[in-house]
Design a protein around this nucleic acid. Structure first.
Lengths: 196, 196, 196, 196
DNA sequence: CATGAATGAGTTTTCATTCAT
DNA sequence: GATGAATGAAAACTCATTCAT
């Protein structure tokens, strides 16, 4: 834990600062000084740790995807000790994914921002693409326990993830209460499972 | 059609220019001069027609929502002369909505941008919110033909729209070919209809 | 009263509009459109009647000086039918000048603006200079009735006018009530007259 | 005298640069780049030290008033070691004030500009008001040595200051030589003192 | 490593002026 | 004579980036 980790600790602090800033303003509207202020770090230092604002962004994308993957991993780890059958497992998995990730407002806000950035920035898009591919493969893997056809499982997985992302979007843009987003999530998953 | 329509014609040209610009760059990264260039008008003129860049944005949001509503209206108008029964009508409606709107890449790109803007800008958010409320009400209305419970119809409608928005997002961020988005759309809708 | 006077009438309207605008904003901060709006005239027309904003200004200076001279003339005309002796006449004259011109807030505001413009613009300065020279000559003329030495009368005249302009300034910048400007004016003039 | 004074030194340089610019052009017509050029600093730096052009102005007003007060203080400090009686002191005081401040052309030019700004800008007006109040109180204080009635002393003080400001104005707008401003100043003060 | 002063390119905005109708 | 759309120069301001200390 010498120099290296001090540096690393500071880089993480900067990433978390940006994460916080993105709750308020878009990346474009967030200045380097805003991030520095949130990180309680001199703004000149940001150029020591990262070579440009674009570089901060690129690193941030990895940071967010990693965080999100680890949330996912935590979720998957839990299932082990529950003694659930196939269907129950799937049900629990969907439920947990929806509630902890999809309806997590901080995460959703960041993701809307990342989608937009990815829509215009090919480097970011590639990173996002890879993350979704992984996520979808995992979901498809789970589905295959009850949907034997791999192609069908893949498609259903895609549809499920699309639905979840749509719900994530709505949790930010629309009135979650009025739309009963929680109930929609639950109901939708129940139906999907019945169908399988 | 004298003065008024000259002004209106130019305002529309500016809106279309912005629409075109948003295929390349985000709104923040699109300068007033970029829009002016695309509209082939002097940049000073944009301030003659709109009082600020923010004002251009607000008007553009309305412009997009109107366009999108009229696409929707066209779609609804077509169904009349088809002599379809309830279920067939619903099936055709979902299919058309998915293919013409959800998988329309130009429209999707613009919508991802609008989502992001709405996430940070309350005025835009309110406009977007109203548009989604309307859209969901329409979809729920159609569903009620086969789902008698209004609350259930509303929830299923929300889910369907969430799914479509997720697919719209994927059409831009991911590899549509690889994911077989068209097939996912079709398959998903078939299943939903079977279920009802 | 053919074309000519219609033009003249409109030019006057523009001058009065500027006069009104200067109650709110400095000349630099008053746009051509502001003036046009106040004159209820199309802004393009201002360039028909005057060749530039600078030209409007130059004409306005003349307009104000003329107005002010005519106020002065009215004041002088009144004295005739009063049957006052030399000293009384002078007293009445000072009193009237102070109250009707110096403490006229609209006029004072315009004059502060004109002073500033004259400080930087030689053309305007020359016009202002001539007006003051005339005014001072008139005042000196009156004083000569009780101060036989012409040079002394001239100097006292200069001092009196300086004092009046200072009071005019204070009527805008300071609290007229608190400073008892009216009383200062009266008292000062009484003392000057006693001294002569 | 480390960091702090480097900043302060540069801020002062900017203030002096503006002071110099105002000898040529009005504040409105002086651009930030003009000031930067005069201060021999990068124009972006002006926005580092001051948050807007308005902020530069506000600070400048304080800067000028402070300078002017310190000139005044120097003047007052001198009188001590002169062994003058009351009347002589007053005479010397008026003389010095008139010659060093009122007829100081650089200062007068700046003051005409400040008057105009104050006429339209309430924040500046308040600062100017306070400065005049102070100045008048000092003058009234001196007068009270020979004019026992405080109210009378105050009024005469106001009149004296009004006269001085009028002379200051004339020193810029009119021909000082032709008007014999120096003589007017001296003569006027002599008379005032005789009267008391 | 850390600081914050300095740079300069780029952006929005204003506005006098022109000119076709 | 009007009108108002169009132009383009110039302004204030922002900010990523650099760099001396």
């Amino acid at each position: 834990m010498g120099r290296k980790s001090v540096q690393e600790e500071k880089r993480v602090r900067i990433m978390e600062a940006l994460n916080q800033c993105l709750q308020e303003k878009s990346f474009d509207q967030t200045s380097i000084k805003d991030i520095a202020r949130a990180a309680q770090v001199n703004h000149g230092l940001l150029h020591y740790y990262f070579k440009s604002k674009e570089d901060i962004l690129i690193n941030y994308i990895d940071f967010v995807i990693d965080h999100y993957k680890s949330m996912f991993a935590v979720l998957l780890a839990e299932k082990e000790n529950k003694g659930l059958d196939e269907k129950q497992l799937l049900e629990w998995f969907f439920q947990a994914m929806g509630e902890r990730i999809t309806l997590n407002r901080r995460l959703s806000k960041v993701f809307i921002e990342i989608w937009e950035i990815a829509a215009y920035n090919p480097v970011v898009r590639e990173k996002v693409r890879r993350a979704y591919r992984e996520w979808m493969a995992t979901v498809a893997g789970y589905l295959q326990r009850v949907v034997p056809d791999p192609a069908a499982a893949r498609r259903i997985g895609t549809a499920v993830v699309a639905f979840l992302e749509g719900m994530s979007l709505f949790s930010i843009l629309l009135d979650a209460q009025e739309l009963e987003l929680s109930e929609v999530l639950t109901g939708f998953q129940r139906r999907i499972l019945q169908m399988l």
